[in-house]
């Protein structure tokens, strides 16, 4: 294993999202990982693009946005260090449904979704481990969306 690969494995396993990950899974997952960074205002991806990655945020802030006619871009969630951007890589048709923009200088680990999907298919224990970590992100996002749709701070609330 090269020094660089070892470094990234450490980074992946130290990230809050993969806290407590068993070493063999860490090796498999970090084989799909690479270090990336984004300047403020730079887009990680755009709505409609192929969702072939997800991002473990190490530093900075990513704004998730949707374009609304007549209103410009609306931010509906910000994601910061120790959190993860992107679940669409898990589910066909693997396509982003929003834009993601670095709101400040952002360092992240980009995970190759196709690579990780292949490894999860080949090793269902790994797949279950990955799913267990993504399900809370999905549920939290769903609950947040419920609150936002209810507009609890609006005049009718």
């Amino acid at each position: 294993m090269s020094g660089a690969a070892k470094d990234i494995e450490e980074i992946v396993r130290e990230h809050a999202f993969f806290e407590g990950l068993l070493e063999p899974f860490g090796k498999l997952i970090s084989g799909c990982a690479k270090n990336v960074h984004f300047q403020p205002g730079e887009y990680l991806f755009h709505e409609g693009d192929a969702a072939d990655q997800f991002y473990l945020i190490r530093q900075g802030c990513v704004a998730l946005e949707i374009k609304a006619p007549g209103r410009g871009a609306i931010t509906f969630q910000t994601v910061r260090e120790d959190e993860v951007v992107g679940v669409e890589w898990l589910i066909p048709p693997y396509r982003w449904s929003y834009d993601a923009r670095a709101a400040e200088f952002t360092r992240a680990i980009a995970m190759d979704g196709a690579c990780l999907r292949r490894k999860c298919e080949a090793d269902h224990d790994l797949g279950y481990e990955v799913m267990k970590r993504f399900m809370p992100v999905l549920i939290q996002r769903l609950q947040a969306a419920q609150m936002q749709i209810l507009d609890v701070y609006g005049e009718q609330a």
């Binding site: 704004a63 998730l64 946005e65 871009a73 609306i74 931010t75 969630q77 923009r101 609150m147």
Partner: peptide, 18 residues
């Protein structure tokens, strides 16, 4: 805040429990 126009806000966006 629950949502924000990109030009208006540089802080957190999301529900308060986050």
């Amino acid at each position: 805040v629950d949502h924000a126009a990109v030009s208006d806000w540089r802080g957190h966006v999301g529900v308060v429990t986050t």
